[in-house]
Nucleic acid binder design. Structure first.
Length: 414
DNA sequence: CAGCCTTTGAAGTAA
DNA sequence: TTACTTCAAAGGCTG
């Protein structure tokens, strides 16, 4: 389990999933609760569009610890400022305007959501499936995860890794995987099995997770409020919650095997990068080398706890709040994230930790640095603006606007 | 159509 | 060690 409550535990090496914030985020449970009730008291009648626009306006003006005006926003912000030491400078408590939350409480938002649970991803992980091709490996290694309840011969179930690693894009053939990915410890049955997936072939296997007992939900049907209410009304014994996964492919994952599929985190280069034969003939060797490099599929960063949470909850928020803009959804999810109980968050931290572990095993030579510069960056002006304008720094705090704007120069400008 | 927005966390770089 | 940047997901929006 994550070292969330140990206080001093943190030094777990690379495996330490306890980020600084991880602990701090839990420090004001009570305040959060209070916060929720206050939130709940806010009127649900506001128009969502208005809320969205107010979100923009307030986000722009909310830096520097200024209270965002809004229905009850001041009191809420105050409470959070008092209760959360690490977020005392943060924008997020105020960033999502009360109005937006209000809007999310609109009737269409309270339509019986949360019959699912945030537990799903974590529990799935806890039930990592034994790989279909596990038996084919000569040197079975100890499983990464507790699979006590999983019969080794059963049809592989999806792990959460599948969930978020599965890509809508066709997966490149293993042979295309760069040398780097390569040391992939494919002798590890667990891992090979985990990633022997292809999104294209998984569609027919919706996955349902069974739950011993329905938990209570910390979140209310309206967006972002904690309200313990009985969960799901699903019939006893029925799968709970239903957690549908991307389809699963039953390939072996063994290199060279026809069904072997690389890690879903591997993103094939855009087809646009493919060269026409004519063009190719014109390329110099050096250029070809560059092209070849460019063709290497990108190994994505493993998702962190919040990303996993977002991935799981996004659809619910979208359905519940009829929102589609990710920026707004992410704000809601950010609030919900902080509203989660310690235990609930811990599950995602644990899940993320396992993700990282698995990722490390799959791509021993991979570094986050590998992907640096692969995304187009914002302009320097944007960076400076955001750095002085309320965007959080590396520690999750938000610099005061009044603070002397230390001239910031990006490390690299591509 | 590439990049922005927006969130948190992990990991990288620079000083 | 500290301070900061970049990337991870996602989908509407924008220039």
């Amino acid at each position: 389990m994550p070292q969330l409550d140990s206080g001093g535990g943190g030094a777990g090496g690379g495996d330490d999933l306890g980020a600084p914030d991880e602990l701090l985020a839990f420090q004001d449970e009570g305040e959060e609760q209070d916060d929720k009730s206050r939130d709940s008291a806010a009127g649900p009648e506001r128009d969502l569009a208005e809320l969205k626009s107010s979100l923009v306006n307030e986000s722009e003006g909310a830096a520097g610890g200024a209270e965002v005006p809004g229905a009850g926003g001041g009191a809420r912000g105050e409470a959070e400022a008092l209760g959360r030491e690490h977020t005392s400078q943060r924008l997020f408590p105020d960033k999502l305007p009360e109005s937006l939350e209000d809007g999310l409480k609109a009737p269409e938002c309270a339509s019986g959501m949360y019959k699912d649970t945030v537990y799903s991803a974590f529990n799935l992980l806890m039930h990592y499936p034994p790989p279909a091709g596990a038996g084919q490996h000569p040197q079975p290694q100890p499983p990464l995860h507790n699979k006590a309840s999983q019969p080794a011969h059963s049809v592989p179930q999806l792990s959460p890794l599948y969930e978020h690693f599965s890509s809508p894009h066709p997966t490149p053939a293993p042979a295309d995987i760069s040398q780097k990915q390569v040391h992939r410890p494919l002798q590890t049955p667990d891992l090979s099995g985990f990633y022997s997936l292809t999104s294209g072939s998984m569609g027919q296997l919706p996955h349902t997770v069974s739950w011993p007992s329905p938990p209570l939900y910390p979140l209310s049907p309206s967006c972002g409020y904690r309200q313990h209410f009985p969960a799901p009304t699903a019939a006893p014994g029925a799968p709970y919650p239903r957690f549908t996964h991307p389809p699963l492919m039953l390939g072996s994952g063994v290199p060279g095997h026809p069904a072997a599929i690389p890690h879903p985190a591997i993103v094939p280069p855009s087809a646009k990068q493919e060269l026409q034969p004519y063009d190719r003939s014109l390329k110099t060797q050096a250029e070809s080398k560059v092209e070849k490099e460019a063709k290497k599929p990108t190994i994505k960063k493993p998702l962190n706890a919040f990303m996993l949470y977002m991935k799981e909850m996004r659809a619910k928020v979208i359905a519940e709040c009829t929102l589609k803009e990710s920026a707004a959804i992410n704000q809601i999810l950010g609030r919900r994230w902080h509203a989660l109980s310690r235990e609930e968050q811990a599950k995602y931290y644990e899940l993320a930790r396992k993700e990282r572990q698995l990722h490390m095993q799959l791509y021993p030579g991979w570094s986050a640095r590998d992907n640096y510069g692969k995304k187009k960056r914002r302009s320097r002006e944007k960076h400076q603006e955001s750095n002085t304008g309320g965007k959080r720094n590396a520690f999750g705090t938000y610099p005061e606007k009044a603070a002397a704007p230390a001239p910031f120069l990006p490390m690299t400008v591509l």
